[in-house]
């Protein structure tokens, strides 16, 4: 245990917020700093076999909690914080088959919603964001501008971005700029 309690500061607490660009009838783009609940990185053992069902069991059960990064790698995200004992339970659940690293402090989730969300992201990444190629539920790690981030589509017009904490504010500013033509409502308070 730590000798003193750490003070939690939201990564985007001091970032730009409010309305940017023209006001649109359809509401434009909404950027949200999502709750810094938990982010777990799961790395499968080489001989672990198919872990998909087991990994869902360490998530909070929400629909897009488990996000595949690549072969044998996942992020498990959720809105609620995990206590040390809850985290130990997740490790025990996959013991011997996968290792789990707590990345809650390291990665930040940003929500981007609105009809223009696809077009905004397409300005920064080479991934084809068309629903045929990137359907709801799909996740992928890619570059947005020069920043590595994970994009997940959670609804037809809603995406979540998982980005390293240190890059979060920089990406936030870039998303505001890329969304200007649609009008951006930036909400930093989770």
């Amino acid at each position: 245990m730590a000798d003193f309690s750490l003070l939690h500061r939201a990564a985007l607490a001091g970032a730009k917020s409010g309305s940017f660009g023209p006001t649109q009838a359809d509401g434009g783009i909404t950027l949200e700093a999502l709750p810094e609940g938990h982010v777990l990185q799961v790395l499968a053992s080489p001989d672990a076999g198919d872990l998909a069902a087991s990994i869902a069991s360490v998530s909070d059960g929400s629909v897009y909690a488990v996000r595949a990064v690549g072969p044998g790698q996942w992020f498990v995200v959720g809105d609620a914080g995990l206590s040390a004992s809850e985290f130990a339970k997740t490790q025990a659940a996959l013991s011997g088959r996968a290792s789990i690293a707590d990345q809650t402090h390291g990665r930040i989730r940003i929500g981007i919603s609105g009809a223009g969300g696809e077009a905004v992201l397409a300005k920064g990444t080479a991934v084809d964001m068309h629903p045929d190629q990137f359907p709801v539920g799909r996740s992928t790690m890619t570059l947005i501008g020069h920043i590595t981030a994970m994009i997940t589509r959670t609804a037809a017009d809603r995406f979540e971005i998982l980005v390293l904490r240190g890059f979060a504010e920089s990406l936030w500013d870039e998303l505001i700029e890329m969304g200007l033509e649609f009008g951006v409502d930036a909400r930093t308070a989770p």
Partner: peptide, 8 residues
């Protein structure tokens, strides 16, 4: 190396 993707 797919550094900014799957890291494979």
């Amino acid at each position: 190396h797919h550094t900014s993707g799957c890291r494979r």
